[in-house]
Design a protein around this nucleic acid. Structure first.
Lengths: 386, 386
DNA sequence: CGGTAATTCTTCCGCCGCAAAAGTAAATGG
DNA sequence: CCATTTACTTTTGCGGCGGAAGAATTACCG
């Protein structure tokens, strides 16, 4: 089982830069890479040769999109052999383990979920080991495992504190490495999603980028210079103290009028339940708001205003080039997107350039995919923070 | 007069890095510089030799602070000859020009102010030229001029729009260069102050840093990776749309309850005047609040809450390592600092690490000094954004 | 259909700049 | 007086880069 795969570490710095550029930005010709990395054409021949020989890159037949009508020798796009390596990503929730296998490009190849019946660290690691073994049968080239957990994670290896698993200082990476023989990275789930979007998603190539997730809780990730800014309160409850409206609703979770009170799915359901006595799902509430039923419409409208205010504040103070709204709670945007945008405008300078806002409803496999990206990063960079 | 001074441009990249490190971080031994720049000891000998020969660096007699009792050959600190070049900084207000001469380290050597009796661009440039000529008499080694103006500045040369001077598209840098023969940089005054603090002040060596100024208006500067993030609404009125309290006071300037309404000196004076009919100075209002007179106390308390809220939001979303409060309106912190800090705590996660908050009352010469730093940057980096 | 221009990629050479190693210098301590 | 420690200098060798020249492949044009 100990098929420890060679990482990209033997590559020189220049080679890694080339490989990374191609990995993240798709098929590129040598000239294009030279331009992006500010290298000479000659250097590119030198750098790509060993990469092609080692099988990491291939010359792809000039795709139709590339074949613009222009004279001169046609360019020869290079691409990563995305299938040459596979990665496993797990997202652990209270009662389920969601697993995916991805390519080097983080495209999901396979999904595989299993209920979690125990919270004992050893038994959870056993289950992850079993799931990995089964996935390894059909995907021989497994190169690493990434695990996303809600809660505080230290050194990409130790779960410092996870309320819903009741864990403290569990050396999860070690436990799973012992059982699989593969390199394992553990990270907070929001951090993993942010990294994935930075490398392969909405934040690709951006210098300043923000991810805001809405779901059971609020998540926030700030990426500067292509790197995620770590922060102390990370997933011990973001947004509980982001007071958006001091007169806002009082909910079991979060301070009065906080982002958590106004926006998270449990809080919105709580507000409806408290007001009407009926226990509706989030989707039902959104549908009700769309039909302009009074209570759902009011709660959703308030949530939309809160979201708009938050986005505006983030834009004003962090000045990102793009904001990604993700999570299970962004269905809000479909129903009340106009109200959100209107609130943003009210809180922004009229001359300020509008911040591109992207919405992406994520399911649990997206979170698992985020975890897989961490494993990709470790392989590619040699270590997580490069 | 055309004593155009050689810039650092002939220096190699490595030499510039060394010079910059010494310039910004004070006397450093070769070993220390090697450590900071991740270079070998050998490289440092090579790089420093021409810098010392050209007179830019000197070996300083080992200061007392350096002479820790430790064995081995004593280190030989290197320092910039700060006096080898002088720089002029101007801050233009509606009715005054504030001027300073600084060293390479941006220490103010001389102050020289003159009333501004005209807003005609040519005559203003004449006056700046005259002031420069007079300063040049006593400071022979002038290497550049920086000018700070409230309003929109383009390409560090053209005042695109300045309401209080009634200027549009004035090529100020060109006008002053013609009259002085010195390289001239024009920038928005807040941007200049931010750069100065980033290089030589509170933000020295930090990766993420925020400057918030309170005065006649609100200013905001975000520094990431040592570089200021430019933004579109820059000084066409920051903070007018940062709604802190939707039920806040209505003032002539800024949206209801905006940072401008709650915090700027004119708005605070307006609130007191509107409520009591008395036209008090900002200092008198602060003194009144300190003596717990009802109206000043209420207005200042509200301002302190607003400031605390803003600082907390900035900390939450931009995650700076330090926030500098500057401008003429930060006297607020002396009177109501505790209320500000209390509000920050209320809007921050209890586990979040507290953001170092620094307060610096700036007078107009500090703004002029900021402008001089721009001239230093141009000389040192060859261009402004290096 | 052949010549020319344009464009990409390759080959080769020279050089810059770095690290490593070895040598020198200046202090402390026994 | 000599070993030890630390700082700096000199020398050497090499990796990696840019630049020039050339090969390959296409479009354009008469």
């Amino acid at each position: 089982m100990t098929t420890r795969v060679a990482s990209w570490l033997p590559l020189s710095a220049g080679e890694r830069a080339v490989a990374l550029e191609v990995l993240v930005h798709g098929p590129l010709s040598r000239t294009e890479i030279a331009r992006r990395l500010s290298l000479s054409a000659g250097s590119l021949t030198r750098l790509t040769k060993p990469l092609i020989e080692s099988g990491l890159l291939v010359e792809v037949p000039e795709g139709a999109a590339f074949a613009e009508v222009r004279q001169g020798r046609p360019s020869q796009p290079l691409d990563i052999v995305a299938e040459s390596r596979s990665f496993v990503g797990f997202k652990i929730t209270e009662d389920m383990v969601y697993g995916v296998v991805t390519t080097l490009r983080s495209e999901i190849v396979t999904r595989y979920d299993r209920p979690l019946t125990t919270h004992d660290p050893g038994e959870v690691a056993d289950q992850l080991g079993e799931m990995t073994a089964e996935l390894a049968d059909s995907h021989p080239g497994l190169a690493g495992i990434g695990i996303g957990v809600g809660g505080l994670v230290q050194d990409r290896a130790v779960v410092g504190e996870s309320p819903f698993l009741s864990w403290r200082d569990v050396r999860l990476a070690e436990l799973v490495e012992e059982r699989t023989g593969l390199p394992v990275v553990v990270e907070n789930d929001v951090a993993a999603l942010v990294e994935a979007e930075t490398w392969f998603g909405a934040g690709r190539g951006l210098d300043r980028f923000v991810v805001l997730t809405i779901g059971a809780g609020i998540g926030y990730g700030l990426v500067l210079g292509g790197k995620r800014v770590p922060c102390a309160e990370e997933d011990r409850g973001f947004g509980r103290h982001w007071i958006v409206d001091p007169n806002g609703p009082l909910t079991p979770d979060g301070e009065r009028g906080s982002a958590v009170s106004l926006l998270t799915i449990p809080s919105i359901r709580y507000q409806i339940r408290a007001a009407t006595g009926r226990d509706l799902t989030y989707e039902e509430i959104l549908a009700g708001a769309a039909r302009e039923e009074p209570m759902p419409a009011r709660v959703i409208d308030e949530a939309a205003r809160a979201l708009g205010t938050l986005v505006a504040q983030i834009s004003n103070f962090a000045m990102p080039q793009k904001i990604l709204l993700a999570g299970e709670g962004v269905g809000l945007m479909d129903v009340a997107g106009e109200r959100v945008r209107e609130t943003i405008r009210a809180h922004r300078h009229p001359l300020a350039d509008p911040v591109p806002l992207e919405t992406k409803v994520s399911d649990f496999h997206d979170w698992a995919r985020g975890a897989a990206v961490l494993a990709i990063q470790v392989l590619v960079l040699g270590s997580y923070d490069g």
